[in-house]
């Protein structure tokens, strides 16, 4: 009489990373879980999935003045360039960005 295996908690690594970032920022005191639920709930008719979590945490930290949408966008571009310059299978590091 064995339990069936539990399904994977995260469908993709970015989901796990998003979850961990949100919990860490909560633990760092940036918001309460009540504030988090309210922020997620602003999009009442949307799936409350990790894509919404990511969008919500980006907005929350911008509201708190931790970073700006512009800084995030610049960092994404840097990672995209770093990825393109990284041989497949090796860790993608920001310092591999040719424009860094």
């Amino acid at each position: 009489m064995s339990r069936p295996p539990e399904p994977p908690v995260f469908a993709a690594p970015w989901e796990a990373q998003t979850f961990a970032l949100v919990v860490s920022l909560h633990d760092a005191g940036l918001f309460t879980w009540g504030e988090w639920a309210q922020a997620l709930g602003r999009h009442g008719d949307r799936m409350a999935d990790y894509a919404l979590w990511l969008e919500t945490i980006e907005a929350l930290i911008a509201e708190r003045g931790l970073t700006s949408p512009t800084a995030l966008e610049a960092r994404r571009a840097a990672f995209a360039r770093a990825a393109a310059a990284t041989p497949h299978g090796q860790p993608i590091l920001l310092e591999n960005d040719p424009e860094a």
């Binding site: 970032l21 920022l25 990511l54 966008e73 960092r75 990284t86 993608i92």
Partner: peptide
């Protein structure tokens, strides 16, 4: 074949994480 690729969601979460790590929040 010589490069790697990150999905849009991977790029977003990596950018976010690397900035937050730099600033000492996580």
């Amino acid at each position: 074949p010589h490069g790697s690729d990150l999905s849009p969601m991977d790029l977003r979460v990596r950018a976010l994480e690397s900035i937050l790590v730099e600033k000492g929040y996580v």
